[in-house]
Write a protein that binds this DNA or RNA. Structure first.
Length: 306
DNA sequence: ATACAGGCTCGCC
DNA sequence: GGCGAGCCTGTA
């Protein structure tokens, strides 16, 4: 197939797709296959350009936010050592513009999951409920619209390995499909109100809401705080803090990282995730994790088996 | 094999 | 209004 070339300066496709903001792109040939809106697209980087499916030029530019003034954004970051290291490591990583529903649904499934598994759940949902598209001879599945999932049963969603997330995804899909939650109209809301609307949805708390604001609503101040970022922040910015409440941490991020906090967060996150040896994680985890949730149940299950 | 994941929600105090 | 426990399942 003939491909079209578009300019993409200050852009790193692989870093962007591998930074945990989007979960459906699959490697294909020397590039990636994915779906933007309803349409399948192939994207391959060649230096400062992208080779893409003809006819998708505008959609690709918009989706990958090639218009974001990356140099200015990075230039406005704080200049502490952690931030500088992340900035250098993540050169070319952009916060993309995802469809609202796909982004929301994906992050509802993300709770307590590693990126690899979120991708699997996305794949299962798409293969079971999504519309098929052909690209370069391979089949791609679009992320199912809310209506489609709203008409499914919790059982069917659980078959996509969602576990307890199935219930939340189904309930939220129903609200979105019915129009009770009109995600499109929320575009005009100020940050705080948008966050409040999102948090009313089942399975959506502050973390997921901030991810959706950042990756789908272009709210570049939104600063999702997950266990990785929490670890980085505590280590780099509060090395000796006794107890740091979530609220205090949130306020610090808002003031310190400011206008482009979301970019700063994504860079710190990606840098930490890609450079931290796995072995160190367990040692550095907050102690409560050792006691709660899965660990306790594992113990029970093991005891029951014996 | 077994610990533990990029949380949310409830019940408890 | 802060804290801990439970929830499902696959992966490292």
């Amino acid at each position: 197939m003939k491909l079209t070339m578009i300019a993409a300066p200050e852009f790193d496709l692989t870093k962007t797709l591998d930074s945990g903001q989007v979960f459906h792109w699959e490697p294909l040939d020397a590039g990636y296959a994915g779906i933007i809106g309803e349409r399948a697209v192939y994207v391959q980087q060649r230096g400062d350009s992208l080779l893409i499916t003809p006819g998708m030029e505008a959609a690709v530019r918009r989706y990958f936010a090639l218009d974001h003034p990356l140099r200015e954004i990075c230039g406005a970051f704080p200049t502490d050592s952690a931030m500088c290291a992340a900035r250098d490591f993540c050169r070319g990583l952009r916060i993309i513009r995802q469809p609202e529903w796909e982004c929301l649904a994906s992050f509802i499934t993300s709770s307590m999951k590693q990126v690899a598994h979120i991708r699997q759940m996305s794949r299962a949902l798409r293969a079971r409920f999504g519309e098929v598209r052909k690209l370069k001879g391979v089949q791609l599945f679009a992320f199912p619209i809310a209506r489609r999932l709203a008409d499914a049963t919790e059982q069917e969603l659980r078959m996509c390995a969602l576990g307890y997330r199935a219930r939340n995804l189904l309930a939220t899909a129903r609200r979105v499909a019915s129009g009770e939650a009109d995600m499109r109209s929320w575009r005009t809301l100020p940050d705080a109100e948008l966050r409040a609307r999102l948090c009313e949805l089942p399975g959506v708390g502050a973390k997921v809401a901030n991810c959706v604001m950042l990756f789908a609503y272009e709210r570049l101040r939104a600063f999702p705080i997950d266990v990785w970022i929490e670890r980085v922040l505590k280590e780099k910015y509060f090395p000796r803090a006794r107890k740091l409440t979530a609220e205090r941490l949130r306020r610090f991020c808002e003031e310190y990282f400011g206008e482009h906090g979301g970019y700063a967060q994504q860079y710190l996150f990606h840098h930490a995730r890609k450079t931290t040896p796995r072995r160190r994680l367990t040692v550095k985890r907050p102690s409560r994790r050792k006691l709660s949730g899965g660990a306790a149940r594992d113990t029970i299950r093991r005891a029951a088996v014996k």
